[in-house]
Structures are given as C-alpha cells and as structure tokens.
C-alpha cells in the first residue's frame, strides 16, 4: 500500500468509526428530510427556507404528527398516546367547556398554543394577536417558535434558550432571554407518559415560559392570580398525602401524578413517589400542557369542573380520571397541592 492509499484508508476508517449522527444532527435523512434542495424556475419549491412543508409546523408533523411523539394526535376524541406536551389536535375541538350548567361555547382555539398548520387546517389564533402577557406575534407561531429544529443548543426537547441560537419561525426573529428548561424527557418513541414514566423537570420551566408570557397570573389586571415559580413548602406535604378527593392518608409512596408535575433537581423521572422535600417547585407545567389539551388554557385538567363527573360533558375528550378508585366524585386537581380547602 502506498502512502496516499494508506492515508485515505485511515481517513475512511475514521469516518466509519465515528458515531452515527441522529436525524436532526444531520444523520439519517439529514438535510433532505426537511428541506428540498431544488427550485423550480427560480421559485423555491414551498417555503422561503426550502422546507418541504408550507411552514415549519407542516414539516415537523410529517414525522411527529401521528407518530414519534404523536404531537398532533389522531382524533379529538381519541388523541392517542401522550408524551407531555399534549396533542395539538384539540385545537380543532368544537367546545371545550366542561363547566356544569354553562352554555358558553369555548372553542378549540383556547385549547393551547395555536400553531399554524395548513395541512392540519389550523390557523392563526383569532383570540390573541400576540402571546398573552408578551409580544410574540401569533401569526408567526409554529413548532420552530419554541423548538430549534437543528437542536444546536442540545437542550431538552430542542427548546430555544438564552445561549444559542435565535428563534426564526417564518422569518420572525425572537431572542430568548431565559435559558432552556432543564429536564429529562421520556423517549417519544417509547411508551406514553404515565405516573411512573414521565418527564423529570429539574428547573427553569416558569422562567422559560416567561420568555413569551411575562405577565400572566400576576398584577392587578390578572383575572386569576397564582404563583408561577414557587417552592412547594407545605404544599409538598399535601401533595404526598393526597390520594384523591377525601383521602389524605398518603405517605408519599404512589403520590406522583403526571397530571400535576413539579420541578425537583433530584427527581428521578421514574417511579411515582411524591416530592421528597419542600424545595420542589410549582411551575407553569404543573397545571398547563405545553402544546394543548382538551381543556381551556391547555389545562392538564379542566379548571371549570367541580368533580370528574363533569369531564367531557361538553362532548370534548374526557381527560382520564387520575384517581379512578375515587370515581366520578374526584374533584379538581387544585386539591393535589391545596388539599380540600382551596384558597380564593
């Protein structure tokens, strides 16, 4: 073997020995999985970023819509497996309002983040021209408003953060001033979330949400005030003892409910034991889904119900009762932290 051949062989061997890159890192599928590299008569095939969908949402949903995370979901009444964020399909609901005795129609527009998806028939939020409590324009809201498709920061769920880079959904540049969430997520290719298989949130959720929603649940104009980034303190004790409406005999074992997650730097992410110390923190995702749910305000449960018997009375997808042994008399999950005496 001459010298140049040997060098070539070493180089090739080095390439072959390297770790296989994942899809979003330029591995399998690589660029052409999301981008079309050709134009027709000078016109980009679809979008200005040469995406293969009309926008980034449509591009993402080709793989992640009804599989690989089921982020859109199959059907408003049978959404399929959930992995934390909740399926966007609820944006297409006719009525989400499970408040007993109410005839008010709350349409699916209120189910969560109104990402724009031509292929799914989801349009710009008609109720909020900008992010509630912030300035992010609804007309630019797509998957890549929050998620960096290239995962350059190597953050949880590819979320943008204050370090790097800018969000550029549809060309709208948005600078995240708070860092990305620290968390360990479950695999989007494996079993769905459950009380024993769930994302372990470490820190930074509320601060991250405030990148866009800086002024919610606080101030004199807030319709509902609530702490958003708060050590649980005594609420941790309530959380552990609460085993459903009328049952506060728990000791922390089997206390964890995926419908009421919390932040904890020591949270294992598996198992269903409750918060081990009062420093566990309440955060936005303790009550809300990041994507959407079949309840108004992307609630992990419908905040308007009195008991679980009300879930789904609007005809919307009934969120499964987290305490089936208690049955339909199970109350709102505000009780999980506050016990039976919920403050005004």
């Amino acid at each position: 073997m001459n010298r140049s051949a040997a060098v070539t062989a070493i180089f090739v061997a080095g390439l072959l020995a390297g770790p296989a890159a994942a899809f979003h890192d330029g591995g399998v599928g690589a660029c052409s999985g999301c981008h079309a590299s050709h134009e027709v008569d000078g016109i980009p095939l679809i979008s200005s970023y040469l995406l293969i969908g009309e926008n980034s949402t449509d591009t993402c949903l080709r793989c992640h819509g009804m599989a690989s995370g089921n982020t859109w979901g199959l059907d408003v009444l049978a959404p399929g497996p959930q992995y934390g964020g909740g399926p966007f399909v609820f944006l297409l609901e006719d009525n989400l309002n499970d408040e007993p005795g109410s005839s008010l129609i709350i349409s699916g527009d209120h189910a969560g983040h109104n990402v724009i998806s031509p292929s799914m028939g989801a349009n710009t939020d008609v109720n909020n021209p900008a992010a509630p409590g912030g300035t992010y324009p609804s007309s630019y809201l797509t998957c890549t408003s929050c998620h960096d498709p290239h995962g350059q920061g190597n953050h949880f769920r590819f979320l943008y953060g204050s370090d790097y880079p800018l969000s550029r959904s549809g060309g709208y540049e948005f600078n995240y001033t708070s860092p990305a969430i620290q968390a360990d997520g479950i695999s989007i290719f494996g079993p769905p979330e459950s009380d024993t298989n769930h994302t372990a949130y470490r820190s930074g959720v509320s601060q991250w949400c405030q990148n866009c929603h800086n002024r919610v649940h606080r101030g004199s104009n807030a319709s509902f005030e609530h702490p958003q980034n708060h050590g649980m303190g005594d609420e941790a004790r309530n959380y552990n003892s609460y085993l459903g409406t009328g049952d506060d005999s728990g000791t922390g074992v089997n206390a964890y409910k995926v419908l009421v997650p919390y932040e904890d730097m020591q949270s294992p992410g598996t198992g269903d034991s409750g918060p081990a110390n009062p420093s566990s923190r309440l955060m936005c995702l303790s009550c809300h889904r990041a994507h959407a749910s079949s309840a108004p305000y992307a609630g992990r449960w419908d905040f308007n119900i009195l008991t679980w018997a009300d879930e789904g009375i609007s005809g919307s997808y009934p969120i499964p009762n987290p305490y089936p042994l208690i049955g339909p008399s199970q109350g709102s999950l505000c009780q999980k932290c506050h016990g039976m005496e919920i403050p005004d």
Partner: peptide
C-alpha cells in the same frame, strides 16, 4: 398559504414540464 397560493399554478405547470 402565501407561497402555496402564489406558486401553485406556476410551479404545477413548470413541474409538469420538468417532469
């Protein structure tokens, strides 16, 4: 549907010719 609308006719025609 900005680009789909704007480009659909032209692209459809051009794509057919290219095809």
């Amino acid at each position: 549907m900005r680009l789909l609308s704007a480009s659909s006719g032209a692209v459809f025609l051009v794509a057919s010719l290219l095809a």
